[in-house]
Write a protein that binds this DNA or RNA. Structure first.
Lengths: 345, 345
DNA sequence: CTGAAAGCGCTAACAG
DNA sequence: CTGTTAGCGCTTTCAG
């Protein structure tokens, strides 16, 4: 008959102490029996396990974390989980964390540096074993140094332009941009716009460079038009409207990501034009929706799920190595998914 | 000049003790100065704060949590964050958590009960202050009781069919189903299919009931066809293919959610048919994509973000009330968003 | 193999 | 206002 403890008529949480009392052994023995399993007689071990079960014992990981110094938790700091790209990355990351018995706390920063810093502080104060974040670009030099010196393992989802002490996981953005540019040039387009985000965004900058390189390396004369704006659907919509009046001769658009591409689609429909008849369009990311819109979007695929998973694996490896792993840079291949948003001229 | 402590040539974490030594006061004083602010002389307080700043002190919330018994963390247990519906809910929840200085750990269960129980255990062991989960349907009676007795506040994103001791936040699913059915009937449709998920899914069951009620309450004779399958895009695709061969007389489809509707769209295109010319289609959820596909989807909107936010607010209120709040049921209104996927007969 | 003792970093009475 | 004392629940030497 298990002896349940009450206080204020409310069920008390059962602790090692109570198990110890019930089993007639010391707390330390209970601890050993419950965790390692080694260095404890089978008989007492079984006894302890039995009592723990009847008492419906839940170990207090907070207490354990206090002594071991590890929380078995990682932080995921992204701009917005509603962006399907990040949802996919998050799922890969969370699956990897789950497999390693780690929890993952989700933080949406909207890329605001104040929020970012607050989240980072909070994560550190909770003693997370690592942080996966999409970029460190929002932080000033001072903050970056503070982060690096703190020593918590960090994996970035892009490759900052300045040298940095963090691990990174990214797609081959340059190659993706190149593929998109090359594809449109090969289709016969000679005036091609690239709609992208802020210049500070490392991944987007790489895509832009690759795109321009593809146009330049062509034997034909191809005119690039690069427009910077918000790398969101709304931004894509606005940039396209501007583009259509300023440079009506354009026949193809390379959007820096699929969200932008969706905005392009909307703007083009509103202008009474058609894809791909009047304008060919290539996106980037290959989010699930890109295959569902009309027309299905040709886009550069990056392995989002795998990137999330890899990032967490690196994080955990790093947090497990006692003397601090050196930062690791991992870049994933990309490929062009040809659908129906482009036509040959 | 701050005195930094080293061990093994590695920066030590700075603790209250070190601040205390540095400031020439006791740890408890430091604690008071840093937290409450009350009951401590301004001079000492400033002194302490100064030392803390130069030492770059990060409080250890784990240690604090051990003594206060609160972790300032909540769990979000959903089937899959890649489902845009949940991404939206998650964002609302996380924003509410952030505003209250709570962290949110993300768990993807895929509705597998083993995973669900493992996550729940893990969350409880981490001492979360509450759990927001989409359903408790995957757990058996025993597990539900254990959960309820444990006493951790729980908010569900649906209303289970059996009586239950948990708080819930949900949309008026019945009304949503009714609106969809009524809309199609008013458009003149007389053979309408409803493509839904498993019978155990409370929300979907409500939608189905509302739909059927609308058809029955019509003065016209309307034939409903209800098909159960996976409430995913894939499931929608399969159910539609089956429907099209078995009941070719159907002129309208009500999909239990937008994901299913996307599958319907795909299947209908593959069959060489067109929306809305041959088949009218209504979805449910109003996820962002639903307005972007072709044709833009008419769908029942539910306030996803607000639901996530409300759920967390209830959770926190509950975890703050000492004697245990009574469970609260909150249901949000829905509305039909008319776009271009339906036509009058 | 097991018990005793110390302590993780912090908060919370209780004196003074 | 501040220091002393205890202790949150657990792990981890160190003896025995």
């Amino acid at each position: 008959m298990p002896e349940l403890e009450f206080q204020n008529n409310r069920l008390m949480k059962v602790t090692l102490k109570q198990i110890a009392k019930q089993a007639g052994v010391d707390v330390s023995t209970v601890s050993r029996a419950l965790t390692g399993g080694y260095g404890v007689h089978k008989a007492t071990r079984d006894k302890v396990l039995g009592v723990a079960k009847t008492l419906n014992y839940y170990p207090n990981r907070i207490a354990r974390g206090l002594v071991t110094g590890r929380s078995h938790t990682i932080g995921l700091l992204i701009s917005d989980i509603r962006n399907p790209f990040f949802a996919e990355v998050a799922r890969g990351a969370e699956d990897a964390a789950y497999n390693a018995s780690f929890d993952m706390v989700l933080c949406n920063s909207d890329l605001e540096s104040v929020k970012q810093m607050r989240y980072i502080r909070s994560l550190i104060e909770k003693n997370v074993d690592g942080i996966l974040m999409n970029s460190v670009a929002g932080l000033d030099q001072q903050e970056q140094i503070e982060l690096a010196e703190h020593g918590v393992p960090i994996v970035l989802l892009n490759r900052p332009m300045a040298p940095h002490p963090f691990s990174t996981v990214s797609a081959d953005n340059y190659r993706g941009g190149f593929l998109a540019g090359q594809y449109l040039v090969d289709l016969g387009h000679r005036t091609i716009a690239h709609l992208t985000g802020p210049r500070t965004h490392g991944n987007l900058t790489e895509r832009c460079k690759g795109f321009l390189a593809a146009l330049e390396s062509s034997r034909k004369k191809v005119t690039p038009i690069v427009i910077h704006g918000d790398h969101t659907q709304k931004g894509g919509h606005e940039m396209t409207k501007k583009l259509l009046v300023q440079r009506p001769e354009v026949t193809a658009i390379f959007a820096a990501n699929d969200a932008v591409a969706f905005g392009v689609v909307r703007a083009i429909l509103e202008a009474g034009l058609s894809i791909p008849d009047n304008i060919s369009l290539v996106g980037f990311d290959n989010v699930e929706l890109s295959g569902l819109i009309h027309p299905p979007l040709t886009t550069v695929n990056q392995p989002k799920y795998e990137m999330g998973r890899a990032a967490v694996e690196i994080l955990l490896a790093q947090s497990n190595s006692p003397n601090g792993h050196p930062p690791e840079q991992r870049v994933f291949g990309v490929n062009l998914v040809e659908r129906q948003s482009c036509r040959a001229l």
